[in-house]
Each structure stands twice: as structure tokens, then as C-alpha cells.
Amino acid sequence: MKNTINFEDFSQVDLRVGTIIEVNDFPKARNPAYQLHIDFGTLGIKKTSAQITTLYNKEDLLNRQIVAVVNFPKKQIANFMSECLVLGAVKEKDVMLLHPELQVKNGTPVL
């Protein structure tokens, strides 16, 4: 377990639901990854990269809803600017995406 935080610390993290609308290979990434474009409704479309190529192919990801942190600063990854962080659970070395059980509006906060 990591260090204990208080509720105020947690409330600073902006978790939102978005829909993956575009998936591209990312050959310049250090580890196998995809470039994702995610629609967060009124927050707009944000880009990120995700090392999820072992469990997901591009077709499986298109139109899938996911959960992401949307208030991190932008981060340069190779020649690509990441604007959010998609959340997943790790099973052995593979990442499984977290997602809502039912379809919700893009940009819906996760509490």
C-alpha cells in the first residue's frame, strides 16, 4: 500500500469517463503501445498513449468507454503529447482497462 492521503488530496484528481474514438499504432514508443483519442464530452477530445497491446487490438478499443485522469499536465512521450491517463488494473504484466458497467455520457465524473 502507498502512503495514506486525505480526502482533499483525492478530491484533486479529476476522474472522467470517455469514449475512445481513434486508435493508432505507436511505433516510436519504448514499449508496445497505442495512441488513443478519447472523447470526454464538454471537456473535448484528449490524446494519450497506453501500453495495452497484449490484451486489446485496435478494433476492440474503438467506441469503448474508459476511465481516465484528465487533470494531469501534458506529458511528452516520444513524438506524442499525452493529455490524460487511462486507468487500468494489472494482471501479471497485462493492463486491463477500467470502464463503467453501463454506458454513460462522455465526461461523466467518477466519484
Rank of each mutant, 00 (worst) to 15 (best):
T48R: 06
I77M: 07
D9R: 03
R16P: 14
L102G: 06
T48N: 09
K74W: 14
T4D: 11
L15V: 03
A78L: 09
V23H: 01
V69Y: 02
L62C: 06
K74P: 15
V67S: 02
E59N: 02
Q65M: 02
L97S: 15
N6E: 01
L55S: 06
A50D: 07
N79E: 12
K74V: 15
V110P: 03
I20P: 05
M81Q: 11
N71C: 07
E8M: 05
K28M: 07
K105W: 03
E83S: 01
M81I: 03
F26N: 00
N31E: 15
G41M: 11
D9A: 12
E101V: 03
L97H: 13
V70T: 15
K2M: 07
N71Y: 04
F40S: 08
E92C: 12
P27L: 01
C84F: 01
D39S: 13
D9K: 11
N63C: 10
G88F: 00
V67Y: 02
T108Q: 06
A33G: 14
I20R: 03
T4W: 11
Q103T: 12
D94P: 11
N31I: 14
P109A: 10
K91T: 05
A29S: 09
V86K: 11
A89K: 10
N3Y: 08
T48W: 06
L97N: 12
H99K: 11
L55I: 02
L85T: 15
K46S: 06
M81F: 04
Y56W: 11
N106R: 07
D25G: 13
N6K: 03
T108W: 03
L102W: 08
F40V: 10
Y34A: 08
N106V: 01
K47A: 14
M1K: 00
Q65R: 02
P109Q: 12
E101D: 14
F10P: 14
V90C: 10
Q51M: 12
K105L: 02
H37Y: 12
E101Y: 02
I20D: 05
A29P: 04
E101T: 02
N79F: 01
K91S: 03
L61R: 05
N57H: 15
K75W: 00
H99E: 13
N57S: 15
E101S: 05
Y56E: 08
M1R: 00
K47W: 07
T42A: 10
G107W: 04
M81D: 13
M1E: 01
R30I: 04
F40T: 09
K75T: 00
Q35G: 04
G44F: 09
L87N: 02
K75M: 06
T4Q: 13
V17K: 04
T4H: 12
R30C: 01
L43W: 03
N63A: 14
L85M: 14
V69Q: 01
F26R: 05
E92M: 10
S49Q: 01
V90L: 09
I66A: 11
D25M: 14
L85Q: 15
P109I: 05
R64E: 03
G44P: 12
G18R: 05
V70C: 15
D94K: 13
A68S: 11
